[in-house]
Simulated scan of single mutants.
Amino acid sequence: MAYAGHVLMENRNGLVARSCLTHATATAERDAALILVDQMAPGWRITLGADKGYDVASFIAALRARRVTPHVAVDGRVSKLGKRRGSGVDGGTMRHAGYAASQRVRKRIEEVFGWIKGSAGLRQTKHRGRNRVGWQFDLAITAYNLIRLPSLLAAAPA
């Protein structure tokens, strides 16, 4: 049994806004991203920064249908025939300054997973079953947000 933990991070403060645990499959990350986006407040226009593993036309189309601007890194690999892989992200999205900012900030998500694996002890789970592992993952996410709060409150203007 293998599980994958997924988080949706708020970029301004680096806090985890949403999280979920799924069975590890080839499309688990993209499927979980859509689930987490659906849990966000409706009506708000949001952007989603992600790495090149999310640069799939069907995923980009699903984000646009949800009124989410995809700030996804372009997967520009070259095939064996010498053709560059097509991207679902259009040039209009990539030319904005917000796209470049999202690409810089999206790397902060690795801090969350690094803390969870190192400090929270989730490199290897001690539980079996999706409910128990999910409970442990949610507890670790909550602890991460609580660890971040003092530094955010200290930096906030009085």
Rank of each mutant, 00 (worst) to 15 (best):
Q136S: 15
G98V: 11
Q124D: 11
T47Y: 09
L63Q: 02
C20T: 14
W135T: 13
V72Q: 00
K126Y: 12
M40F: 01
A155W: 09
G14F: 02
G53L: 02
V133M: 03
A73W: 00
A155N: 11
G134K: 13
Q124S: 10
I141Q: 15
K80V: 10
V37T: 14
R123N: 14
A32D: 09
M94F: 00
L152H: 09
S119L: 01
L122Y: 03
R64V: 13
M9C: 14
I141T: 12
P150F: 15
D31C: 10
L15A: 07
A26V: 11
P42Y: 07
A32P: 08
G88S: 04
R108D: 05
I60K: 00
R132M: 12
W135Y: 12
N145E: 15
A65G: 05
A65C: 04
H127D: 11
R95F: 09
A50T: 07
M1P: 06
H127C: 10
L48Q: 11
A155M: 03
A50W: 07
K80N: 08
R123G: 13
V7L: 07
P70E: 00
I60N: 01
M9F: 11
A100Q: 09
G134A: 09
G43W: 08
T25E: 08
D90N: 05
E111L: 11
V89K: 01
L34Q: 03
A41L: 03
R77S: 06
G121N: 10
K80C: 05
I109K: 04
L139E: 12
T69D: 10
G114H: 13
H23A: 03
K52D: 06
G118L: 10
R106L: 13
D38E: 12
R64C: 08
R123Y: 08
A61Q: 04
L81S: 06
T22R: 15
L81C: 07
H23F: 05
R95G: 07
L48E: 13
L81I: 04
S151K: 12
G118T: 14
R12C: 05
T142R: 15
V56N: 02
D138P: 02
A61S: 06
A4V: 07
A50Y: 04
G53R: 07
A101F: 01
K83C: 11
A65M: 05
D31I: 11
R30V: 09
G14L: 06
I46P: 04
S119E: 06
V16N: 15
G43A: 10
Y99G: 02
G88E: 03
S102M: 08
H71V: 01
V78K: 03
R148Y: 02
M40H: 00
R64F: 08
A62D: 05
R45H: 07
G76E: 05
R108C: 01
G98I: 04
D31G: 10
E111N: 07
Y144V: 14
I60G: 00
Y54W: 00
A97C: 01
N11C: 02
A33V: 15
T69F: 01
R30A: 10
I147S: 12
